[in-house]
Nucleic acid binder design. Structure first.
Lengths: 226, 226
DNA sequence: ATTTAACTTAAGAAATAGTTATTTTTAGAC
DNA sequence: GTCTAAAAATAACTATTTCTTAAGTTAAAT
């Protein structure tokens, strides 16, 4: 999810960036209205957060300009101007939400999520991800990221990793894995689990110093960091 | 436009009713949570405004109940509880907006209008175009443009592409596509989806360097740039 | 040291995806 | 109603990817 912040107060901008990046959003910052407008129109952002009092182009005009060519992108106004007149003016300019400074980041985050939920619309699902250490699984895109790199997995690899990430810090026996991931209850006499553990290790552990898949000999495997 | 107000303080409820009726909304009032729930579920309201502290059922549980069966109706929480914890709890319960008492009617009205605008947008009244990367779909003229060139699609191709553009950046399984685009729930045993994906690719991806339709083998297709 | 369990690799089987051609259906013109 | 052209669905085939098995190798436990 790409979010654009248009805010000249560097401290505020950084605060929001930090918070949003923790939630796995991709954040871009523009420090004045002109740059903000250029960025908003050139790239496809999922949401825009803008101040009103800005150098070069103010937030209200900016909002109208963006609305004119991108009617669907949600815009949140985040400003010190707190009178009802200000708010109504903001909404009239095309804002979807209006938050007065000082604000708590958690409220901003909640409002962002609501707008993104609405946006993705009918399906209503927000980013659903699993995370263990620095390994992030996105259930929507069926992709896995570690250390900024995308790792592509086959369906069985994905299902196995998903199961392990759902059950970290506990030993998973081969029988259990067979039942939950392969939906079968009997032993085929082959070592397919070892093969898949090996595939996963090559993809998610090989190039990284901290390993996530650990073997408990005679018992099974355990998924954890450290 | 039908609006439901769930509010036990008669003075507040009447104040909102008067204001909304002046704006030509049709207003219904419920004075407790139980009645509010019954009304919300039985009639099709365009928007619901609810207090949190209510007799019988509180606004948060009410909100969850309504969400469960009517995920699309906008809900505004209007309450005296103003801490960030309260707000986050409200949004988590499924609220679309949260306004703290005392409030000015004009702000409430502005927020109502934004939510109703979004809503009608979903039905394609305001948002008449979809865009992903440089591919633009106009829902009014039923045309598609990419890189300045018009691309003509058959009805089924158009519907498939529309569905994919409504749900970008997420894997769409064949089952999902079959249900949403072909309105059928059973497997015909043929590979008609692959055929249509192939048609679309020839028309929207073939002559362009960045592809938009990507295959996740064994999972489905994902519509995105890059 | 011996036995058992785990790891690695490769190759064939099975499943999935892509392409093209052909048949069936649909909608509009006559 | 019949005819025709376009669209949709099916079928047949090829290509690609993924899954499973098996065998050899290494590591761990007794």
């Amino acid at each position: 999810m790409q979010i654009l912040i248009i805010e000249d107060d560097q401290r505020v901008a950084e605060l929001i960036r930090r918070g949003l990046e923790e939630e796995h959003f991709k954040v871009t910052i523009a420090y004045d209205g002109e740059l903000g407008k250029k960025m908003a129109l050139s790239k496809a952002f999922d949401l825009i957060i803008t101040d009103i009092i800005l150098p070069k182009i103010n937030g209200l005009d900016l909002c109208k300009d963006i609305r004119a060519s991108k009617p669907e992108v949600p815009i949140i106004m985040l400003t010190a101007l707190g009178t009802t007149d200000d708010k109504v003016e903001g909404f009239d300019a095309g804002a979807d939400d209006y938050l007065v400074k000082p604000f708590e980041f958690r409220e901003l985050l909640a409002r962002i999520k609501v707008l993104l939920k609405r946006k993705s619309g009918m399906n209503g699902v927000i980013v659903s991800t699993l995370q263990v250490a620095d390994l992030i699984m996105n259930l929507h895109t069926k992709t896995v990221h570690r250390g900024g790199k995308e790792i592509s997995l086959t369906p069985k690899e994905f299902k196995l990793l998903e199961y392990m990430m759902h059950n970290p810090n506990r030993v998973l026996s081969r029988v259990e894995i067979t039942e939950k991931v392969w939906d079968t209850h009997f032993d085929t006499g082959t070592n397919f689990i070892d093969v898949y553990i090996n595939y996963l290790r090559k993809k998610i552990d090989k190039d990284f110093p901290t390993k996530l898949i650990h073997t408990k000999s005679g018992m099974g495997f355990i998924f954890k960091s450290e």
